[in-house]
Design a protein around this nucleic acid. Structure first.
Lengths: 146, 146
DNA sequence: ATACAAGTTCAAGTTGACTTTAAGTCAAGT
DNA sequence: ACTTGACTTAAAGTCAACTTGAACTTGTAT
């Protein structure tokens, strides 16, 4: 398969695929002339990468998880990541509850609502690092702009 | 309170506070000479900002949520964000389960494990945007480097 | 044979959220 | 008067994850 087929099938632009290859996240098995040739199974790998990216992992972290530098280290890493996700899930859940409450709360300012302040305080206890933005408005599956 | 007090109390560097003020996320009530003067309640606001950041909101989104451009629009926005969080929580939960499974799975490659592939397939159904990185190694609460 | 579409490289640009740096201001202490 | 230390500004730098641009190569269609 050539790069545009992978692009179409994965929904990722060719530029991203080249970038991923450069970073070692995917491999092409050879060239036809200059053109990269891919096995179909990179699609699975790309799905996995997308999943991990969406779960908040950086490309570097994903690469770490892919490369088995001793299988035990790897398993450990996976569990550590899972625990991180647990923390993050709790944070998001609290934030979500906060938002739902704020939307119906009648206090003139949220800072005057005891419920809100209590949640704030609880949340403040763990000084966590930001994840980053949620979806905004970018279309979900543009393949390329040909 | 001057900027270093806020920095100390919030755990954020002064540069970040200036940046936030510039972006309209916090306000100083005046100056003493050149120096900004803050009311103590910016600390609450900063806690809220931290919470929201950690939940994956961009500064722009947080600003939107702060500025009441008609209270109804605002409530709606909050609910929309809450729904987004619900989606994200489901994704993270699935990823976490994936990781925990992968850590104990005995299949030679995860791509040969039916359980894993099924999860992948399910996850692939929603083409989501990335959040971003989880915590990595940066220390949690450096105030400044004075 | 030649044009063209679709690939290629390498470098530079973009975005968001900050941080760093250089140069300046100013109140307080000696 | 002068040094110090904490602040100030504006501009530039950083980082990840891409994207874009300019110039180049190739297999296929006319």
């Amino acid at each position: 398969m050539d790069i545009s087929e992978i692009a179409k099938a994965s929904g990722l632009p060719a530029s991203t695929l080249r970038y991923y290859e450069e970073k070692g996240l995917i491999q092409s098995y050879g060239r036809s002339g200059l053109r990269r040739l891919f096995h179909a199974d990179v699609l699975q790998r790309l799905a996995l990468i997308s999943l991990a990216r969406s779960a908040g992992f950086s490309l570097e972290e994903i690469l770490e998880m892919f490369t088995p530098q001793g299988p035990e280290i790897n398993r450990k890493l996976l569990l550590i990541k899972a625990d991180e996700l647990d923390r993050k899930i709790r944070e998001l859940t609290s934030m979500r509850d906060n938002l739902r409450h704020a939307a119906v709360c009648s206090a003139p300012s949220h800072f005057e609502c005891p419920k809100f302040l209590r949640l704030l305080k609880v949340a403040g206890k763990n000084r966590f690092r930001p994840l980053n933005k949620l979806s905004k408005n970018k279309p979900t599956g543009k393949a390329q702009k040909t």
